[in-house]
């Protein structure tokens, strides 16, 4: 019985995470207005993916994704965005 509840809980969490990830991915692609929001949404996709990796039994991958995929990558994007700001004709 315990196992049953645990499994269903994990299933629900996974579904919720997947949904949130897809919404964030849509924001990353379709946000016509603001580039920073798209970058943050891409970082959010990575962060949610790292939680999902944890649920899928891959803690090593989860740590890597959290540190590299959502941390350093997002920062790199903003670094470059700060450099090209002001001259980008269409943002």
């Amino acid at each position: 019985m315990d196992l049953f509840i645990r499994d269903n809980l994990m299933l629900a969490m996974l579904l919720l995470l997947s949904l949130a990830m897809l919404v964030a991915a849509f924001m990353a692609i379709y946000s016509k207005r603001s580039l920073p929001i798209a970058m943050l949404a891409a970082g959010l996709v990575s962060l949610l993916a790292s939680v999902q990796f944890l649920l899928l039994g891959a803690p090593d991958v989860a740590m890597t994704e959290a540190a590299i995929g959502s941390g350093l990558t997002t920062f790199l994007f903003f670094f470059i965005l700060g450099r090209v700001r002001g001259g980008a004709n269409r943002d």
């Binding site: 990353a28 580039l35 891409a42």
Partner: peptide, 23 residues
């Protein structure tokens, strides 16, 4: 997309997807 940074953002999203499939 025609903006290069947006294309790179989209690429990282696809990258995350590939990792998720493999795991």
């Amino acid at each position: 997309h025609s903006h290069i940074l947006r294309m790179i953002v989209a690429f990282t999203v696809a990258n995350t997807g590939v990792n998720l499939v493999l795991v």
